[in-house]
């Protein structure tokens, strides 16, 4: 099939949009990994909870769903902190596979608690801006996608400023670079664990809100696939590297959509892993990864 420029650009936009969700998830995972050196495989379930929190508040209050970022992020931060304290802290420093096992347990718990609260039927809401489109270079793009992309950029910039310019952010980075040394200079690393896990969960909550606003459907089981892909992105970009997560997210978002365009939708999920395997064969630590151990 011949791909015209207009289709190419259009698919790029869908890729960028998909990339935004992945980036938010992957950045959160990476922040947690940097500080705690653990991976939360149940991260996608936090996205799902974020989606439902947004949905519930939207139904209850009728607020503009974008404003509900102010609800989903803090609520998810609290949930994240609880999960860190109850599940991940007790296993810090034990076997490396334990966090995967804990995550499997968490996946079952979160999905089914959500199903009990919200039932497992598919839900969807509508953005108040759904009628508005913007024409850029001859392409009609619904304004929601632009807002989503801008929101993601703003959140990332905020995170950057927090990490680079504040004392707390400095402490997080210090812990991430060298936990023991951070402890020696008097940083409360356990607080940093909570903080990073909370922020990571908050980013997943933001991703959940953006998922809902774009009119995508969701149910309690929808989190696994994006989470697994986000983790693939983390590995592609390199464990612990936030720029890696951003670039990896963009690569995957765009690659997936071009796969659908060229090979077919059946390959959409598999392409993430094909890229993952290829990258790891060529660069075993990912594109921007720190040397393991």
């Amino acid at each position: 099939m011949e791909i015209g420029l207009d289709i190419f650009l259009q698919v790029m936009v869908w890729g960028l949009y998909a990339g935004c969700i992945y980036i938010l998830l992957a950045t959160g995972l990476n922040l947690i990994f940097g500080v705690m050196k653990v991976v939360n495989f149940a991260h996608g379930q936090l996205l799902m909870i974020g989606a439902y929190v947004t949905f519930s508040f939207f139904v209850l209050t009728g607020f503009n769903p974008y404003v509900l970022l102010a609800a989903s992020i803090p609520i998810l931060i609290v949930i994240g902190v609880c999960i860190e304290r109850l599940c991940f802290r007790p296993i810090l420093g034990t076997g490396k596979l334990n966090e995967i096992f804990i995550s499997i347990g968490l996946i079952y718990i979160l999905e089914n608690v959500a199903a009990m609260i919200w039932t497992d039927e598919w839900k969807t809401i509508r953005s108040p801006f759904e009628e508005i489109t913007v024409t850029i270079g001859g392409m009609k793009i619904p304004v929601d996608y632009l807002i989503i992309i801008v929101t993601t950029v703003l959140i990332l910039v905020g995170l950057y400023i927090f990490l680079k310019k504040t004392r707390l952010g400095l402490a997080v980075r210090a812990t991430s670079q060298n936990r023991k040394a951070a402890m020696l200079v008097g940083i409360n690393v356990e607080r940093m664990d909570m903080l990073s896990f909370g922020i990571g969960a908050g980013l997943a909550g933001a991703a959940g809100t953006l998922w809902v606003v774009s009119g995508q459907v969701f149910n309690p089981y929808m989190g696994s696939v994006p989470a697994v892909k986000a983790f693939a992105i983390v590995i592609i970009g390199g464990l612990g590297s936030i720029p890696g997560a951003i670039i990896g997210g963009l690569i995957l978002g765009i690659a997936e959509n071009f796969t659908v365009l060229t090979i077919g939708g059946a390959w959409k999920d598999a392409v993430a892993f094909l890229i993952l395997i290829l990258v790891l064969i060529i660069k075993p630590n990912g594109l921007f990864g720190e040397k393991a151990e």
Binding site: Y17, V217, N257, V260
Partner: peptide
Amino acid sequence: SDFRTALTS
């Protein structure tokens, strides 16, 4: 849940 590219095609 994301069919935009398939629909574009």
